[in-house]
Design a protein around this nucleic acid. Structure first.
Length: 170
DNA sequence: TTAGTGATATCC
DNA sequence: GATATCACTAAA
């Protein structure tokens, strides 16, 4: 198993997001238990122009994470009860990232983080260095298809219709 | 379709 | 300090 490295994440989110589909998300729990979940769905959020991207509302303490180096983990609480997990991609100071939207056995971004026991403690950590959370390539080929992103009706016609959601065919 | 839930940003 | 909003989920 090969852990995804800096070169993998240090590309445009529109390249990283489809490449993450089919990769293996690995979580080591405090008691040593290893959880593995194949990524089934991702979404790309790209720059301040993208009205669906949190950074489009300006650089704030919350969105600061999006400006960090590729591989950094961005976790935030949504609707008061759900943690959503992203990975930062591309150049530093250029706000973009990929939302991990589902695993093969967990069909929702908050279900995925709940299963993997990921919460805001991981915000600011990195998939490149963490001993508790990383992503591996199992070398298995896979195919995917694109679709529009979910839950961003507020982003306007142009952005909400971008085919920036990537779904594993299975 | 709707309630539940709380951090965050944006106004006083 | 008050309010509106939200990259969701489960139940009905």
């Amino acid at each position: 198993m090969k852990r995804l490295d800096e070169a993998f994440f240090h590309r445009d989110c529109l390249e990283v997001a489809p490449d993450l589909v089919g990769k293996i998300l690995v979580r080591r729990l405090p008691d040593g238990t290893i959880l593995r979940e194949k990524i089934a769905e991702t979404e790309a959020y790209r720059g301040t122009e993208d009205l669906a991207c949190h950074a489009s509302k300006g650089r704030t303490p919350r969105t600061e994470m999006l400006y960090r180096e590729s591989g950094v983990i961005y976790v935030y609480l949504c609707y008061g009860m759900h943690y959503l997990m992203n990975v930062i991609t591309g150049e530093s100071e250029q706000p973009q990232g990929v939302l991990l939207r589902a695993g093969v056995t967990h069909n929702g971004p908050a279900k995925l983080t709940k299963y993997l026991q990921v919460d805001k403690r991981f915000n600011g950590d990195s998939f490149l260095t963490s001993e508790e959370l990383w992503i591996e390539d199992d070398g298995m080929p896979c195919t995917y298809h694109t679709d529009v992103r979910v839950g961003i009706d507020y982003a306007g016609e142009i952005w909400k219709n971008k085919p920036w959601r990537f779904v594993l065919d299975q």
